[in-house]
Design a protein around this nucleic acid. Structure first.
Ligand SMILES: [Mn+2]
Ligand SMILES: [Mn+2]
Ligand SMILES: [Zn+2]
Ligand SMILES: [Zn+2]
Lengths: 132, 132
DNA sequence: AATAAGGTGAGAATCGTTCTCATGACATCG
DNA sequence: CGATGTCATGAGAACGATTCTCACCTTATT
């Protein structure tokens, strides 16, 4: 239960706080390395796991299956619109889809509904940068 | 381009046609093995890949990251309500969410929008079987 | 049958993630 | 202080789904 605050965990949380976008464990590890905060890769994974379980970070799967982590502003349930090129993220509220999801599932006699709703696209900056 | 009809591809398609639920490549491989239709695992992956590209099968990611495949009745875009216990699947139409997704993304200046929308729950049969 | 274009499969290679285990940090108790 | 129990760390091994390699079959087509 404890969850001791160690130099390593502090470093991971701080790095997340400074980053606005979803990042992989390996990217975070590299970032920490680069600033001299040496933290083992396994430790980064463990810290992220703990944070995810405590709902302190959101996790989502990139198309290639890699897990991406982000410290969102909101603790409450929400979804994301993510740029697949730069990772830029917008938090999304979806009262409309929330209602739709539970209605549809109930109509089919399903219980304990969960939903996965994520939007991917190309942000304005990335569109401008790549073509015009 | 060709896409020759080989014994192996036929076997994969037939197996998919007989299964109502989402299955992994490895499960399909095992199923084929069990019925004496010997097909290499790599070939199963390649067949599923080709079918997915041709929109003949739908692919979704299980929570552990494994890809699951299903030959849906509908060829058009749709979503799924899946029982997390038995894999029972209901195809879902979502004009409401389709509209919501593109509106939200456009409002943020995003292009080339894609969305992931999947519903997970416990089907009526599984609820009845487990408790009451 | 000859041939070109694909397809196949056993095993190696990838790669993100998890596990192992010896070592280190910390708090508590006496 | 020194002993002790608990949790954390990290280098590298292990895992597991998927992809790649490459020598060898199949299938269309002529
Ligand atoms: Mn929601
Ligand atoms: Mn849709
Ligand atoms: Zn972008
Ligand atoms: Zn069920």
């Amino acid at each position: 239960m404890a969850a001791r605050m160690t130099r390593q965990r502090t470093a991971v949380v701080e790095a997340l706080d400074e980053l606005a976008d979803f990042r992989s464990a390996q990217q975070l590890h590299e970032t920490l390395r680069a600033r001299g905060e040496s933290v083992g890769l396994a430790t980064v994974y463990r810290a992220l796991q703990a944070l995810a379980e405590a709902s302190e970070v959101d996790v989502l799967r990139a198309e290639d299956g890699e897990s991406l982590y982000r410290r969102c502003a909101r603790r409450e349930h929400h979804h994301h619109l993510v740029c697949r090129h730069c990772g830029r993220t917008v938090e999304i509220d979806g009262p409309t889809v929330e209602a739709w999801a539970s209605k549809v599932a109930a109509a089919q006699g399903f219980d304990d509904i969960e939903h996965t709703i994520e939007l991917w696209g190309t942000c304005a900056d990335c569109r401008a940068a790549s073509a015009g």
